[in-house]
Design a binder for these strands. Structure first.
Lengths: 343, 343
DNA sequence: TTTCAACACTACCACGTTTTCGTAAAGCAA
DNA sequence: TTGCTTTACGAAAACGTGGTAGTGTTGAAA
């Protein structure tokens, strides 16, 4: 077991100084060719690689970026990571991942853990609990320390930073409009509780589409689901209680549950009930019938976020001091993917 | 924008030495109470936190573990990450993730990137290409440098290290046996190419179950799929060409594709065709019909792997030198989750 | 008065790297 | 010989931390 070799060891072995070794390896002209080649050969033989930690300490940058997300076993979030990962790799960055589990405390803890030098910047999506509490001090703090943060999907207006989002309201509007265009008038909405920012926005889009088309908006046709595990029951109740011919669900899971429940009740999708879901994931593609969805490219969001972050990081290098804080919010376009659950 | 404060800055501000500050913060008795409290108050006010990088350099350990997996947008792998993440967090470790994209080169590159001090140990599952080439020098190298590696799921006998696997062969055997117990005799197998270790093992289990039950084993009923994207065509061909009453698929995706294709052909699942899939994921739960699967708890594998790795890391601290290399291979139990795709 | 211990703190080193500055030796012109 | 440049290298600081060893002062016991 040969431990990694260091400059110091090479220097000692070859009986030269550490600086000579360092310079030789960086091909400095200061060092005579003979010595230079000798050092390089030796280093190559022992497979010398500079120690990242030492470099980080010296350069005050780690070349890694932290991602904080609510869940990882989640199609959308994992596609985002994928996007980030690809861009990060391209630019020589590593990706450190922490999962907040939708808990405020874990989010804070994770951020603090990473903020002390482990990473150069954050890419994050807020946990439900954080959105509920509206407490963003941990993020402000990190930003105040000069660490760039890029938020995506679940963002907040209370924090000034770069953001990557989709136009949730417009996308929801488009989805509902398409249902209306197909002659559906009684459209239900299955969404999350309001404090989840994207849930609220999608609800707004739904409402606007109805009103613009002169369709009465009724609270009775809306259910807000807090706990995913019990959504089956709630959805079943809705289906039994009310009559409607279309549903807009803010995620795949709700949608597929609706379809399954409807089928059990003898309703046919899409004939009796058209279904559109937000977020194009794996379920929509493989459920029966396949589900029409609003695609929301997590990969694009991730790679865009990573690009924004890295750009800011590399920009800092040059100006170093107080660059003008012109934060941007990037809107990723969505589109409707028509499948079998609508006609 | 106040950058993070350091010991040095505190020392300067309070006009004491750096060591005094350091010791005060660690509550050393060497420092008089007055000074100690003054320093602590000051540090608290400026929210002092020791710099992780400096600590890593000093302690020669980073308190982070690297995960290398073939894909991240993948139910099984993301559950594994989840398991790792939880345990890691519990022990104060961060998780750095790299995706090999099933490419040998990316796997090597990622490992090299992380091996130079960024992490204390690896948890990994081999990329397809690596398994195909059988080239594991990058892993040997890392291990030789004294960095512990834990492999999971896609492992190899060519490397000596801790491993976490399931008994793929036995699990496949059990699945096929259950089909036979239900009176199925013509059982097809849809699997991956042989060089994927788990694919091969599952094929072996399938074969053994047939033979043990006195059922002829026929190559005609086996298809090995290389490219997931074109599996639909291949599967469709199989369904048209051969007659069989049950299928064992080595993953969910194959299974759901089989079901959909069978439905199109007018075959009823499970009446005409029983289907069992390996790997219990989200598709199986939500497809119609829901799919009977072999559960393979990624979370358990992840947390087990993390525990093994961390244990080894903390053990190293004590003995420091050459601990007896008694590597273990942990086998996670599986069980059959019966759903609608079988009777 | 001397000696010793307790106290309160500072100096220094190590971790691995890069980089700035310094300097000895050699070469060369005046 | 003197003065200057060039070549080839080394010393040391810096990044931030924490531990060991050391130092100087004070007060009290011998």
């Amino acid at each position: 077991m040969k431990r990694k070799i260091t400059l110091k060891q090479i220097a000692k072995e070859l009986d030269v100084s550490i600086s000579t070794v360092s310079k030789s390896l960086r091909n400095s002209l200061e060092i005579g060719e003979e010595t230079r080649l000798k050092v390089q050969a030796f280093a190559k033989f022992y497979n010398y690689k500079p120690n990242n930690i030492a470099l980080s300490l010296k350069n005050r940058k780690t070349k890694s970026i932290g991602i904080i997300i609510p869940e990882i076993v989640h199609y959308f979030f994992s596609t985002v990571i994928n996007g980030v990962e690809q861009v990060a790799n391209e630019y020589g960055y590593s990706v450190v991942i922490c999962v907040s589990d939708d808990s405020f405390d874990k989010e804070v803890l994770n951020m603090e853990m990473l903020a002390n030098g482990s990473i150069d910047g954050f890419i994050m999506s807020l946990s439900k609990e954080t959105q509920f509490k509206g407490d963003f001090h941990h993020i402000t703090e990190v930003i105040n320390q000069g660490m760039p943060v890029v938020m995506f999907d679940r963002v907040t207006n209370d924090i000034l930073c770069d953001k990557v989002i989709i136009d949730d309201k417009a996308a929801a509007y488009e989805a509902v409009q398409s249902l209306i265009d197909n002659g559906r008038r009684k459209i239900a909405l299955v969404t999350t509780v309001d404090y989840v920012s994207v849930g609220k926005l999608r609800t707004d889009g739904y409402e606007k589409a109805l009103l613009d088309n002169g369709i009465a908006f009724s609270e009775d046709l809306i259910i807000k689901i807090e706990d995913v595990d019990t959504c089956e029951i709630t959805i079943s109740e809705l289906l039994h209680a009310r009559a409607f011919d279309a549903v807009f669900a803010v995620n795949e899971l709700f949608a597929v549950t609706i379809i399954k429940t409807a089928n059990k009740m003898g309703l046919k999708v899409p004939e009796d009930l058209a279904v559109i879901a937000f977020t194009d994931g794996i379920i929509s593609k493989y459920s029966t019938p396949t589900i029409t969805t609003v695609s929301q490219s997590g990969e694009k969001m991730g790679s865009k976020a990573a690009k924004m972050l890295i750009e800011r990081l590399e920009a800092e290098e040059d100006d170093d001091e107080e660059h003008t804080e012109n934060y941007t919010t990037e809107v990723i376009e969505t589109h409707l993917i028509k499948r079998e659950s609508t006609d």
